[in-house]
C-alpha cells in the first residue's frame, strides 16, 4: 500500500531535515558550516531525538546524504515500495531500507557516473546504443522524481505518495512505457534506473543501507557471504543456510 501520512510524519520530517543540511531559514551550502548544523538547528528536543536515533537499528546509515527535500524523498519511498512491495513473504523496499540505499548511491560514484564516459557531444541514439543522456544519474533521479510528482498532480491532482497503490502503478507504468516527457532523459530510462536500483537495494550486502536484517536474502533463500560450499556442493538436499553479511 501507499505510504500514508501519519503521526510520525512530524518526527520523520524533523529527522530528515536535521540530517539533510537544511536549517530553519535556509540551506547550508558548505562543509565547514555543516559541522555547526546541530548547534544551529532551532529545535528544542533535537539532542534527545539524536540519541534515540543512534540506538535504533541501522540509524547511522538510515539517513539521507543526497536528498535534501522530504517531499521528493516521499516520492522515492512510495515508488520503490510499488516496485518491491511488502507482502506475506516479507518486507517491502521501504522496510528494507531501499530509499536510503538509493540516497547513498546517488551521493557517490554511481550517482555521479565517475567511472563512465560523460564527454559530449550528446545525441539521443538508437535503442541499441545505451545510456546517452547528458544527465548524471543523480540528476536523472531528480528529474524523474519531479516528473512522477507533476504527472500525478496533472492526472490525479494529488502527490504521488498520496495516490492509491493502483494509481501509483498506473503512473509508473506510463513512465516505464516512455509515455511521459521529461527533460534530457526518457521516462523509460529513468524507470529502468529506478527499478534496477530498487532491486540492488533489496539484495545488496546490508553495508550499503538496504537489505535490512538480510531479509531480502532470506526471502530468496540466498545465504549471502559464505566462505566455502566445498562440503555441500554435491549434496542432493536443498541447503537452508543462515545468511551472513560480509561485515557482520
Amino acid at each position: 500500500m501507499a505510504e500514508t501520512p501519519n503521526n510520525s510524519e512530524n518526527m520523520s520530517r524533523r529527522k530528515f531535515l536535521r540530517n539533510s543540511g537544511y536549517v530553519a531559514g535556509g540551506l547550508i551550502g558548505g562543509g565547514i558550516i555543516g559541522g555547526l548544523l546541530g548547534a544551529n538547528l532551532n529545535d528544542d528536543d533535537n539532542d534527545k531525538t539524536a540519541k534515540t536515533d543512534t540506538n535504533a537499528a541501522h540509524s547511522s546509515n538510515q539517513a539521507p546524504i543526497y536528498f535534501t527535500n522530504p517531499e521528493q524523498f516521499a516520492v522515492l519511498k512510495a515508488a520503490v515500495e510499488r516496485i518491491y512491495p511488502k507482502d506475506d513473504n516479507g518486507p517491502g523496499a521501504v522496510d528494507l531500507g531501499v530509499p536510503f540505499f538509493i540516497d547513498h548511491q546517488l551521493a557517490g560514484s554511481y550517482g555521479n557516473n565517475t567511472r563512465e564516459y560523460m564527454q559530449g557531444p550528446f545525441f539521443p541514439g538508437s535503442d541499441f546504443q545505451g545510456y546517452q543522456t547528458p544527465l548524471l544519474r543523480h540528476e536523472a533521479f531528480d528529474v524523474g522524481l519531479a516528473g512522477l510528482q507533476s504527472y500525478s498532480q496533472q492526472k490525479y491532482k494529488k502527490n504521488f505518495a498520496e495516490l492509491e497503490g493502483e494509481q501509483q502503478d498506473e503512473v509508473l507504468k506510463a513512465f516505464e512505457e516512455k509515455k511521459v516527457k521529461l527533460k534530457a532523459v526518457t521516462s523509460s530510462t529513468f524507470f529502468n534506473l529506478l527499478r534496477a536500483a530498487t532491486l540492488e537495494g533489496v539484495y545488496a550486502d546490508p553495508v550499503y543501507a538496504g537489505n535490512t536484517n538480510m531479509d531480502g536474502w532470506k526471502m530468496k533463500g540466498f545465504p549471502g557471504h559464505q566462505m566455502s560450499y566445498l562440503d555441500k556442493i554435491d549434496s542432493k538436499e536443498f541447503q537452508k543456510i543462515k545468511p551472513n553479511s560480509l561485515h557482520a
Binding site: 557516473n113 567511472r115 564516459y117 540492488e200 539484495y203 550499503y208
Partner: peptide
Amino acid sequence: HDELRYAIRYELMQDLS
C-alpha cells in the same frame, strides 16, 4: 563477496571515464 561492488558496479573493470 560483494555482488553490488564487483558484479554490478564493476570494481575490477575498465574506468570508462
